[in-house]
Design a protein around this nucleic acid. Structure first.
Lengths: 179, 179
DNA sequence: GTCTATAACCTGATAGAC
DNA sequence: GTCTATCAGGTTATAGAC
């Protein structure tokens, strides 16, 4: 792994744990084992760094979703796979990358805000298309997708805080009975 | 309003907009029209300040919930009232006080984390008791309460980002058909 | 209670040597 | 590419005058 990739990976972890203002270039450099000026060599400021983090995260997250889809034979399997992944994030005391950036939007550029928003939209679209593959009639695909993602983010936030899996498990059983 | 109350109110607003690390004692003092040392006179550090903010917010939020309940004649009315309140927060480019503190938990004391967690638990309990007053059979009160609060927090996060009310309105119509 | 002044430190960012 | 050195500015926090 290149130094640049190492920095991106570590920045991603730090972002998920402490938010946009929760770490400095120095912290980041120390963990990776370089000096802060070396981090500046790759990323001229935090905004550029977060653009790289978001891109790397989106790619990895998309791959994970595809793996879940490949291994699933029902909509409930997909839901389980996604919830398992969120439980893992909560237990690592992390939060969603997009969620962190969304919460800390006040400290980000307009371009960055648009990118995060687009990532959420893409996720909603992906999920509603997956739901469409497993027909059910009670609710529209878009609506189910939207509610599921909203609840995932909120449940992750609260389970990380309470150090339990209550909210995410509650969401799991709820979704199971719904679809 | 006393200077202390002014500081708490302004700290609450700053927290909801920019998070725990999104403002300084100086920013706060400037807005209120005093010097930062005067803020330190009332609150020896940010943690103490947030304890006061959480207490003030909880009291106000509880009153708002009670008002919603008093003016409601159905569970759908209660849901509408709560969602309207969250839409207002999103449109002001704010986030939930407890949500912000939960996200930024890494920078808070253990005592503070416990208090935020207790506030979420109290909200879940309150809501499940309200739901119990309007009997319905599909889901348990606790489960509905948990999912609704999770989805509220997540939808608020995304609607604040997208500057729309899509997720919260989606949640509204979803809940209407559910209860 | 509110102020000035200041200590001690952290921050992003850059210039220039190697 | 990575470093040392450094800057200008922001941060919490406190001592002491009024």
């Amino acid at each position: 792994m290149s130094k640049k990739e190492e920095i991106i990976l570590e920045a991603c972890r730090a972002l998920q744990e402490g938010g946009v203002n929760g770490f400095s270039f120095r912290d980041l450099a120390d963990t990776v084992g370089v000096k802060s000026s070396s981090v500046h060599y790759y990323f001229k400021n935090k905004n550029d760094l977060f653009i790289a983090v978001l891109e790397a995260f989106t790619e990895e997250f998309t791959q994970n979703l595809q793996s879940i889809l490949d291994e699933s034979s029902s909509l409930q399997d997909v839901i389980d796979g996604i919830i398992d992944q969120f439980i893992e994030i909560a237990q690592e005391q992390k939060f969603c990358v997009c969620g962190m950036l969304a919460i800390d939007q006040k400290h980000l550029s307009e371009e960055m805000i648009s990118r995060v928003n687009e990532t959420f939209c893409a996720l909603r679209k992906w999920l509603s298309e997956v739901i469409a593959q497993y027909p059910q009639e009670k609710f529209s695909n878009e609506e189910l997708s939207s509610i599921f993602i909203s609840a995932l983010e909120g449940a992750l936030m609260m389970d990380r805080l309470s150090k339990t899996t209550e909210s995410l498990e509650s969401l799991r059983s709820f979704m199971h009975r719904l679809v």
